[in-house]
């Protein structure tokens, strides 16, 4: 991981909302095929961090480097500025899965998955349809292709959202608390799909509260606290033998967590 050019590098990332500085300088290098779980209590900045990577939030300072090429330029006051065409290219290469799924309610499941390839990448409809059906099969929802999202359970909706992101064939996947708005009995099916993806050697970053899942999923665990990376290491290091007191306190609050 260390020697080759990282797929993604984050350098000195800062983000403020008004007077409130949420991210206070984050550095991270992600190698190809790495799976990173990002933990932290609410307000630690973990979601904001993830959302800065694909510019859902515009970083206040720092650099995002994708495959050796920095995104945007330093504008006034060190704030990153990127042209919209560049952002669109970035986002076709970095997929995102949201906590609230955000499926398009006016399109069928199949149309949801086809939308990016057809509208953004300009694929032929037939080609996109075949591909979309493929990805739906991969998340176990081939038979729901012609349904509208409202008819699906939360877990199914989130699996469609994963298929929608996969259909863009991104190099990196970002998961923003993908199971936080699901009923407990629906969490498992989504986590199974994500675990399945990790077997394919994809590069993924995941913000989650599911510590047990993070343990099995991740090759590296980050613990964020007050806008900084407080501790990082293998799942065993961070989750079983945390060196930092903050991390220990955080983990103690999840007393019911088993690996």
């Amino acid at each position: 991981m260390a020697d080759a050019t990282p797929v993604l590098a984050v350098e000195g990332l800062r983000k403020s909302f008004g007077p409130n500085e949420v991210l206070k300088g984050i550095d991270l290098k992600v190698g190809a095929g790495e799976r990173i779980a990002i933990l932290g209590s609410s307000g630690s900045g973990k979601s904001t961090f993830l959302r800065c990577i694909n510019f859902m939030e515009t970083p206040s300072a720092g650099r995002i480097v994708l495959d050796g090429a920095p995104i945007g330029t330093q504008g006034r006051g060190g704030v990153l500025a990127a042209k919209s065409a560049e952002l669109r290219r970035l986002r076709t290469r970095v997929g995102m899965i949201f906590q609230q799924f955000n499926l398009f309610p006016h399109m069928t499941v199949l149309e949801n998955v086809m939308e990016g390839p057809v509208t953004v990448k300009g694929l032929k409809r037939e080609e996109a349809r075949a591909k979309a059906q493929d990805y739906l099969k991969r998340v176990g929802l081939a038979e729901k292709a012609d349904q509208y999202p409202q008819r699906l359970s939360g877990g199914q909706q989130q699996r469609v959202a994963i298929a929608r992101a996969l259909a863009m064939e991104p190099e990196i996947l970002l998961f923003d608390e993908p199971t936080s708005s699901l009923d407990p009995e629906l969490v498992g099916e989504v986590l199974d799909v994500i675990l399945g993806l990790s077997q394919e050697g994809r590069t993924m970053l995941l913000v989650t509260h599911e510590l047990g899942f993070a343990y099995h999923f991740a090759t590296r665990v980050l613990f964020l606290h007050e806008g900084r990376i407080h501790e990082q290491g293998t799942p065993d290091e961070v989750l079983k033998n945390p060196g930092q007191e903050r991390t220990q306190a955080f983990l103690r609050r999840f007393s019911a967590f088993h690996f």
Binding site: R88, R91, E115
Partner: peptide
């Protein structure tokens, strides 16, 4: 909902595509 705009942006849509399609 803001999530609809975000979902469109996240798959790389331009503002015009977002308006027209989503």
């Amino acid at each position: 909902p803001a999530g609809q705009w975000e979902a469109g942006r996240a798959i790389g849509m331009s503002e015009w595509q977002l308006l027209r399609r989503i």
